[in-house]
Computed example of a mutant assay.
Amino acid sequence: MTIHTYTDLPLVDRAAFELACARHGFAPIHFDVTGEPDPNDPEHGEFLIVRRGQWAQAYRIDPRGQWLRQFEVDLNGKFFRQAPSV
């Protein structure tokens, strides 16, 4: 599966992503979401890169949706809210 934007996510993941964003005062449009093959295992692994401004985080895509829990942990920790350093 090739992911170019969050709308390319599976329906369940897309809905969970939208809910996580809303719970933390964001909209999905605030993030750039792209998929990247795992450089160590391109045939079997893929990372989801979530960017907001200069901040980016990579999550391994798995069938259990673990990346969504990790994304929400980052939102709880205000990872994507940090002001850019000058």
Rank of each mutant, 00 (worst) to 15 (best):
L9F: 13
R14V: 02
V12F: 11
A56Q: 15
G53L: 09
G25K: 03
L75I: 04
F26M: 01
Q70I: 01
I61L: 15
P28W: 04
V50P: 07
A20K: 08
Q54R: 09
R51D: 04
P37D: 14
C21T: 08
R23P: 00
Q70T: 09
P28V: 03
L48Q: 05
T34I: 15
H30I: 00
R64Q: 10
F17K: 00
V12S: 10
A58M: 13
N40I: 01
E72M: 11
L48F: 01
R64W: 03
M1H: 07
G35S: 13
I49V: 15
L19E: 14
V73T: 09
D38R: 04
E46H: 01
G25E: 04
E46G: 00
P42A: 07
E36R: 14
L9T: 12
A15Y: 02
I61A: 14
Y59G: 01
W67R: 09
N76K: 10
F26Y: 15
Y6A: 09
E43K: 15
E46S: 07
E18C: 04
L9I: 12
L19G: 02
L68R: 07
A22N: 06
L19F: 03
L75K: 08
H30F: 04
V33R: 00
Q57F: 11
A15L: 12
K78M: 10
T2V: 10
D41Q: 00
G65M: 05
P37G: 02
Q82S: 05
P28E: 01
A16Y: 02
R60A: 15
A16M: 07
D74Y: 08
A20H: 12
G77Q: 13
S85H: 10
D13Y: 02
I61K: 12
A27P: 00
D8Y: 06
I49D: 05
V33S: 02
P63Q: 13
D38P: 03
T7Y: 07
H24K: 06
Q66E: 13
Q82K: 12
G77N: 14
A15S: 10
A22L: 10
P63R: 13
P84E: 14
T2Y: 06
V12Q: 12
N76G: 00
P10D: 09
H30A: 14
